[in-house]
Write a protein that binds this DNA or RNA. Structure first.
Lengths: 337, 337
DNA sequence: CTGTTAGCGCCTTCAC
DNA sequence: GTGAAGGCGCTAACAG
């Protein structure tokens, strides 16, 4: 990278003159047009770009934090909007700027992210959607910067989570209350820790309460609407269809609804549907029929992540903290509400 | 903000010793535990945080760009995920890091954004969802950094757009082809430039082709599913319901579908529905019934924005450039396909 | 009108 | 084990 000095040399003027032109003060300081042209030519010739770090340093920048959000992009839900929406109000409560940099990473490939291995990139990080492999990586290679885990539990690191087991249980209890004895479940094919705990919460609660989930009624699929569509087709082919279906995500449930509607299978009369809510609450509220969900408070978790990580940066927190948020059961028509 | 020097002074050691401890080299350099404790105490006492700019500067950081994405958050669609998803592959094609910082702003309040007024924050910006007021602001107060407008047209600034008039026209032509003579439209209450052009494309194409849109069949509402729900209720109350409805967004259309399904009004038999697609393509594909959309290529536009702005930063582009992307009509069941 | 100079906060030799 | 010095790229006095 060329510097302002290179530009000055090439155009035959001093650095300060270049700086003046660069900052649009040419008029004020009455720099001749000719000089300006020379400078601009040199800038183009060299492909010069001002160094942001130098500018910031020089300008004795007020305090600011830059936080990287590590977000596994092939995690097929667009909950990112919710995540950012949740952070925003919290960020606004601080008197200094907090920059949020989105760092999409491939699942299982968190180890490729240089930003976590260097202290020159971000002040801190929030890491979302870690897979088992990613967690193992974090445990064996502690990042160089403070960070918070988003909805993952860890003894040694800061984390903000919901009680995932309880979320699954809530779904189960609702169906048990309805007297359902014969359950099915549509689970994520790729298991992340938090989610497998969720499924476990559902399944164990069912079996502990004398409701049956036979193995052929457990369908695995991708976390997407299409995944739900494919799962629904499997459901239709079951010899004995269960009375109720638990879905690991609302996307999956939406896909299932589509297929059932097309096949004139009535929800909730023929089938109860309950899902974990992590996508658009509005979409769940206004689907056909409206979908019963155990809602994960994405926005709340995000806000708590910001709060926690700022606490760490400000030295108010030094040992690992663990914050818990509550999931909320929202009964709607799909479960006969 | 305190500096490393303050820490050194308070703990009674030299700056370099502090630096060593700070960078985890205490063991290697055999710094006594006592010294380390003193330093750590001082760090906490002062609330010291290393200055990222100084670190970057010192480390002669490789080239990197930081681009601010100005995104009007009360624009109620979660197309932000699509935007970022679209940028990612393009970003990966460059040999240097491109940091994307999300800057949510309130509609009409772009003028509050300091990042655009200073050259110390971002190397460049991508500005999305500008309102008329925001555009006026940009015209009267040119930002201090290079930027690209996302789906807004401007003579003097870089922009990436679709032909919005054409998008509206495509929707109209589809319905005209079906022989519809009696149209309705559900438009955004708050008009953004691009969208009013879109609506105009629809309306003018209809009237030019002898299809009637009487004023009472034009409903305005919020850009959200709820907005669609409310609009649908107005639709149901119309004396003479039009045969087809054009919606400014797919969110609105989804809300309408919900109400129609509940009221046993059959789409497409009783009503054709066509919308501008900017939300989740999957949700539109698998709604009940699947929704016909004129799809805005969000991902493509985003990628082109990155390409364009990097071109500017690299001095390959100096005069304002305007890139056009094509919208695509995707016929589905809601229009009788 | 333009050039010289002195740091901004940090890290890395190199001495002691 | 620790300290002193230099410089990363840039800007804002202050001189001319």
């Amino acid at each position: 990278m060329s510097t302002i000095r290179d530009v000055a040399t090439l155009s035959g003027v001093s650095v300060s003159t270049v700086s003046i032109v660069l900052n649009g003060q040419a008029k004020d300081r009455k720099i001749s047009q000719e000089t300006q042209n020379k400078i601009n030519d040199a800038i183009k010739a060299l492909g010069y770009r001002p160094n942001m770090s130098a500018k910031k340093l020089r300008s004795a920048a007020d305090k600011e934090y830059t936080i990287g959000i590590y977000w596994a992009s092939d995690f097929r839900t667009n909950f990112l909007s919710r995540l950012l929406t949740g952070m925003q109000p919290e960020i606004m409560t601080y008197p200094f700027p907090i920059n949020i940099v989105i760092c999409p990473y491939k699942n299982d490939c968190l180890y490729r992210e240089k930003g976590l291995r260097s202290s020159n990139t971000f002040d801190a990080a929030i890491i979302a959607n870690t897979s088992v492999a990613d967690m193992e990586y974090l445990n064996s290679h502690p990042p160089q910067i403070p960070f918070v885990l988003y909805n993952r539990t860890s003894e040694q690191y800061n984390s903000v989570t919901i009680d995932n087991y309880d979320a699954g249980r809530k779904a189960a209890l609702l169906l048990l209350d309805k007297g359902v004895k014969n359950m099915g479940a549509v689970l994520f094919r790729d298991t992340y820790l938090a989610m497998s705990i969720r499924s476990r919460g559902f399944i164990e609660t069912c079996t502990n309460n004398n409701a049956k989930i036979s193995p052929e009624n457990i369908i695995t699929t991708e976390n997407s609407i299409l995944g739900g569509v494919l799962a629904a087709e499997k459901y239709l082919n079951l010899k004995a269809r269960p009375r109720a279906l638990y879905c690991d995500s609302d996307s999956i449930a939406q896909g299932i609804l589509h297929v059932l509607n097309k096949n004139q299978i009535n929800v909730p009369d023929d089938l109860f549907l309950v899902a974990i809510g992590m996508g658009s609450p509005e979409a769940n509220q206004y689907s056909t029929p409206p979908l019963t969900v155990v809602e994960i408070p994405i926005e709340k978790i995000s806000a708590e992540c910001i709060k926690l990580i700022v606490g760490v940066l400000e030295h108010q927190i030094d040992t690992p903290h663990h914050v818990y948020c509550d999931s909320e059961l929202i009964p709607r028509e799909s479960s006969g509400f």
